[in-house]
């Protein structure tokens, strides 16, 4: 099984008529994702290569039954787009857009928790989610992921980084290991979906047998995940944390990747994960090899 999305997920693209939205929306459809609609207040009534465009999420949901959305709207419009999706009845919102102000993220994270507790937001600043062979929402290259095979040992992936996620998918594919779902939670300070949300879902998914977790410097999400793994995850986990050599006080590309004083270091995260029984690799390849060993030993 997959987590959060599956072959029945119907996706509306907020910003489908923009260049990025159109490019990835059509790629996702080619992959097999049910891309049922797009929204654009000015281009309602038109279509993008046959995909109908509506003025609002509410209209798109009423006409197509969309239950997920994917946001490709520029950063200034993201706060309104997230709230429009939630108010319009979307249950799973994927926000690809990067450069969203942290105050907006903190605001809509808390607003959703309070007024729309059933809505799951992924991102912002994330590559999206792929359940190989079933659904791909976002900017992940679908062909580098091998689908989970029923009856075999399959892996779930959760990651803060885009390219390292691709690297992990690719290495597992090279080893013939299937992936149930790969979730890119993104590199921003207030991600809508956390490591723990994904660990919980993978733990509950009978088709996922092991979990690969890719973290990076900044914040304490990996330490919190380590605590959760210790108390609530029975499946084996392998991990890699990027940024062992990152200097303190510098943002390393991602808005959330910054070591502040003594907190947020890769070393502290690796130690916390190892103490929770996680196999931690020193580089992405080693983490992949550790996962191969884990899967072969299952």
């Amino acid at each position: 099984m997959s987590i959060f999305v599956d072959e029945n997920t119907k996706v509306v693209y907020q910003g489908l008529t923009g260049s990025q939205g159109r490019y990835y929306g059509l790629l996702n459809r080619d992959y097999g994702t049910k891309v049922v609609a797009g929204t654009s207040p000015k281009k309602a009534g038109t279509d993008v290569d046959g995909i109908p465009v509506f003025a609002t999420i509410k209209d798109a949901v009423a006409e197509t039954g969309a239950n997920a959305s994917c946001i490709f709207i520029p950063a200034p419009g993201v706060r309104a787009a997230v709230m429009e999706a939630a108010e319009g009845g979307i249950e799973f919102i994927v926000c690809i857009t990067e450069g969203v102000p942290a105050h907006d993220e903190a605001w809509f994270y808390n607003k959703l928790k309070r007024d729309f507790p059933g809505v799951q937001l992924l991102g912002p600043n994330c590559p999206g989610i792929i359940s190989p062979g079933k659904c791909n929402i976002g900017i992940t290259a679908g062909h580098i992921a091998k689908a989970a095979v029923p009856g075999e040992k399959n892996v779930g992936i959760v990651s803060r980084s885009g390219t390292l996620t691709y690297q992990a998918l690719y290495e597992l594919q090279q080893q013939g290991i299937g992936v149930t779902t790969c979730v890119g939670i993104g590199g921003d300070p207030v991600p809508g979906t956390t490591f723990i949300d994904c660990l919980k879902a993978f733990e509950a998914d009978p088709e996922t047998h092991a979990i690969m977790m890719i973290g990076e410097i900044g914040g304490s999400a990996e330490e919190e995940a380590a605590d959760y793994i210790k108390s609530s995850v029975s499946k084996p986990v392998s991990s890699y944390i990027a940024g062992v050599t990152a200097p303190a006080g510098k943002k390393m590309g991602h808005a959330g990747a910054i070591v502040s004083g003594n907190t947020g270091t890769a070393k502290a995260k690796m130690e916390a994960l190892e103490a929770a029984g996680v196999k931690v690799g020193l580089n992405p390849t080693e983490a992949g090899e550790l996962m191969v060993e884990i899967v072969k030993g299952l």
Binding site: T163, Q167, E216, T245, M252, G253, A257, P284
Partner: peptide, 21 residues
């Protein structure tokens, strides 16, 4: 490198084999 995570990871690997970025 392409991607913030891969770039950070590249620094780590250079360090791991005895160099510095």
């Amino acid at each position: 490198a392409n991607g913030a995570g891969l770039a950070m990871s590249t620094l780590d690997v250079v360090n791991q084999v005895g160099g510095a970025a």
